[in-house]
């Protein structure tokens, strides 16, 4: 199986976030016309969101210089962990549109 450019052997440098990106690059994703998870307006600085940085298996949440949490939706595995950890007061969460998002080939 071929790897895309930027592929980094995960065990060469375990702290390299590219390892995770490369792993997500192995999955099949179908484009969605809108992000299915959003940080609710005015909530980016909410402490509850910080939990998502730790729990998200795809590492899609990060903290910016202002101490606010940012979300990149590409690579979302639709597991629901962020919703359970942070709650629906801070996250708008629905599944991607029909046919969009991750399509597991093994599962």
């Amino acid at each position: 199986m071929g790897h895309g450019p930027g592929y980094v052997e995960a065990d060469e440098d375990m702290s390299n976030p590219l390892g995770l990106k490369a792993k997500l690059g192995l999955d099949v994703f179908k484009h969605d016309k809108e992000p299915h998870i959003t940080i609710k307006a005015g909530m980016a600085g909410d402490q509850r969101l910080k939990k998502a940085i730790i729990v998200c298996p795809a590492g899609l949440y990060s903290e910016n210089a202002q101490g606010e949490v940012e979300l990149t939706i590409d690579g979302c595995l639709e597991c629901g962990t962020c919703l359970l950890a942070c709650g629906s007061e801070v996250l708008g969460w629905q599944y991607p549109n029909g046919g969009a998002g991750v399509q597991f080939r093994f599962g």
């Binding site: 995960a10 065990d11 375990m14 192995l26 999955d27 595995l77 080939r105 093994f106």
Partner: peptide, 24 residues
Amino acid sequence: EEFKLRPEVARLIAGGETAEYSAH
């Protein structure tokens, strides 16, 4: 990732190629 690096685990998956990453 750290679990995969444990020698007890690393030797079992050595030479293998990750084909999919999932979470639920």
